Computed example of a mutant assay.
Amino acid sequence: MERRFFSGAIKGKNLLYLKDSQATTVPTANVGFVLLENFSLPAFTQALDTLVTANLLQAELFATHTFSLDGAEVVSDLGIVIRPDRDLQTTPLESLQLLVICGGLRTPLRMSPALVALLKKAAERGIALAGLWNGAWFLGRAGLLEGYRCAIHPEHRPALAEAVKNSQVTSESYMVDRDRYTAASPNGAFYMVLDWIGNLHGKALVDGIVDILAFEASRFKRVDPKLHFKMTAPLREVVKLMEANLEEPLDLVQLCTYVDRSRRQIERLFRDQLGTSPLRYYLELRLTEGRRLLQHSSLTIVEVALACGFVSSSHFSKCYASYFGHSPSKEKRLNN
């Protein structure tokens, strides 16, 4: 049987269930979080959850480590105490790919000589540096944002602008400029880390993470490290029609008629914006729903096939096996 692979638009939704040649083995990347006094716990957990979810989709992509200035416990802005792995003096910089400074609304803008030394050493070693909430201020005071664009919470923009004369302090929720990653909010922390992950592992993994953690945003938006691209209105309407008509699929003529576009226009929109054809996208959408039904319902294979618009269970099984590498009967029933 010829093996088929999900297109980029749908691959992310199924990445957790593709345990074969569609996934590649890569070295684990280490991420360090420096937790400052009264750091923003929501921003930290958003960043951490993004990395943990990536590991759920593809095992052992990332390892995370927490540090404090002196190795002691740190109280977050919500009053929850975090016990770090170690202090700055014993931080193994040579193993890190990303170092994140976690600040917060009430984090004092007070620079530690040990932190300055750590950040400069990390920059010299080519480690990507990041700041959450007012974390950019600490990067700036260490002289590591000169000539960079950055993001910081509005309360701390004046302080950063005063501390770093040659950086562009933006009003964005997050900013990526070369190897500097800064976020002004918890939501910004999510997209900041997502951007870093995308640079390392590509769009499919990013789509998979967004589909789990921000599925509403993922339906018609492609999160790209350089460009936030939204589907055009006609394509968005076609995708909505497809999603609403899985049991009785519409043919391409019907889809074109509903959105008042020609077949050629629709095919070009799918090719240019989703990197696939309308028919393939529709098939992969139905197979994805089939996988969900098999895992999370008690429907039989025949019932699942009909619910996903396949004329026979044999056709469904053949298509399913070609994409997932195993037949529907071998799928794990997670509701049992």
Rank of each mutant, 00 (worst) to 15 (best):
R4P: 01
G103S: 05
E243M: 14
I266V: 15
S297Y: 09
L16N: 02
V206M: 09
F39H: 02
Y181R: 01
L105C: 01
M111F: 02
G135Q: 01
A47C: 13
V81C: 10
R106H: 08
G126R: 05
A161P: 03
T91K: 02
R86M: 11
Q89F: 08
P328W: 02
L283M: 10
T300S: 14
N166G: 10
S322Q: 15
Q97N: 13
Q168K: 14
S218F: 09
R4S: 07
L35R: 04
G143L: 03
F220I: 07
R178M: 11
K121Q: 15
K318C: 12
L48A: 08
R333I: 06
T64M: 12
E248C: 04
F138C: 01
D77T: 07
R178Q: 14
G188K: 03
V223W: 08
S218H: 13
I212A: 08
E243P: 03
L250R: 11
A217Y: 12
H65D: 03
Y258D: 05
N336M: 10
S314V: 14
P113T: 01
S68V: 02
T107K: 08
A184Y: 02
V34T: 07
L132D: 02
G126V: 09
L56H: 11
L56F: 13
L88I: 15
D195Q: 12
F33E: 00
R83D: 05
D70G: 12
G325Q: 05
R268Y: 12
Q273G: 01
F5K: 15
R178P: 01
Y320T: 03
N134E: 06
S218N: 15
T90W: 01
L61P: 08
V193R: 07
L109M: 05
L269V: 06
A29W: 06
S95N: 14
A117G: 04
I80Y: 10
Y191S: 08
P42V: 10
R271N: 09
A114M: 07
G309A: 11
A72H: 09
H65M: 12
G12I: 05
A23Q: 15
Q168W: 12
S40H: 05
Y181P: 05
T66F: 09
R286H: 04
V34H: 03
E248T: 15
A54H: 01
E2S: 11
H201E: 03
V304D: 02
I209G: 03
L241H: 08
Y191W: 15
S112K: 04
S297V: 06
V164S: 01
Y191E: 14
A159P: 01
R178S: 14
K120Y: 03
S171G: 09
D260W: 04
A29D: 11
N336Y: 03
G8P: 11
D85S: 13
G202E: 06
L306G: 08
E289V: 09
L109R: 08
F39D: 00
A29Q: 14
S317A: 15
P108D: 04
V176K: 07
D49V: 10
A163I: 00
N187F: 05
E303F: 06
V239E: 03
S317N: 04
K165R: 14
Y17V: 10
A151P: 00
A305T: 05
K19A: 10
K221W: 02
T300N: 06
A63H: 14
E155N: 07
V193G: 08
E247M: 12
N166L: 11
R236K: 15
A43S: 15
R280D: 10
R3Y: 08
T66R: 14
A47M: 10
I212T: 08
S68L: 01
M192W: 04
T45E: 10
